[in-house]
Amino acid sequence: MISKDIALGFFFLFQTVLGALGNSFLLGLYTITYFVGPRLRPIGLILTHLAFVNDLVLLSKGIPQTITILGLTNFLDDVGCKLVFYFHKVSRDLSLCTTCLLSSFQAITLSPRNSWWAKFKAGAPKCIVPLFLSCWAFYLLTNCMILLYMKAPIGNKNITEGQHYIYCSAAFPISLNIATYIFTFSLPNFLCIGIMVGTSGYMVFFLYKHRQRVQYIHGNNLTPSGCPETRATQAILMLVILFVSFYSLNSILMLCIHLGKSFWLVHTSTFLAACFPAVSSFVLIVSDSHVYKYFSALWEKMMIQFS
């Protein structure tokens, strides 16, 4: 084993552990707050689900990738490869769907009473759980192809037919048009990306107009970015920008991987796929003042109980 493999392995391990800790903190915070803390905002349910699926993304890809790079090869059989890749793809698609729902919900929340979005305000919180269930059912079904064609390595090397992904391989039948399959089942993801870009543009426009109105009324001394709702919106916009950027770069690399096999392209693609799940929780922790509010309320309640 050469030193660059050790460094790369610990790099992926650091990314996985750090991201899992951040998402687990948010997941635990929102879950405890829901049961014993102050009243949780409806959007808190979306953030809880986002933290959960991001944890799945990191653990289902980061751990096997790290183990392989550090020298333990062929540790997964056919069933293990199928499940690891299946749950990684499902959780990654759910992360996209949840981020899209987060952006849409915040756009509806911000909309004024006389806007077209206003008619969805009352019913939007009631649609969150049904939308989650629909997303889970859809992506569990559409990714079943992975369960058919993912294979474990044979002997000391991966099978040569299809594509290899460091510790597993995909053996697609000749009759299957991979490009057509990828394009067809990527259409819902492209739709989610389009919705995120549209709702983000709407929120940017709303914040710009709001800032102009506030400065006109109160002068230039007021800082509208200090408003909790504005800071929450800015955090969500940052999440959308990060997701679209990393998702687009990773999609380009995945296309390159299908055109030509390169382990370094696979490593880079894995790193980019894990970037958003790893950093999203820290963006919320730093930018969203509601996270600090929930944590402070729970901490005070704990101090009262133990005092």
Rank of each mutant, 00 (worst) to 15 (best):
A273E: 15
M145N: 15
F132D: 10
W116F: 06
I195L: 12
T33M: 00
I257G: 10
I182P: 10
F206C: 01
K121Y: 02
V84S: 06
S186K: 11
W264R: 05
Y294F: 15
Y30L: 12
F14R: 06
I166C: 08
L187A: 15
D5C: 10
I193E: 02
C227E: 14
G71N: 14
V244R: 01
F185I: 15
P153W: 11
C81N: 02
Y30D: 02
V283C: 14
I146F: 12
S289K: 05
P112Y: 03
R231V: 00
R113K: 13
P153Y: 14
S269E: 04
I128V: 08
L26P: 06
H258L: 02
I285D: 02
S262R: 05
V17T: 11
C168G: 01
I159T: 07
S111E: 08
A152V: 01
T270K: 12
G9K: 15
V53A: 08
K4R: 10
K151E: 02
Q65E: 03
S280P: 11
L50G: 08
N54C: 14
S307Q: 09
Q163N: 11
T66D: 07
Y30W: 04
R113S: 14
G226P: 01
F12G: 09
M303C: 03
Y34T: 08
I166T: 10
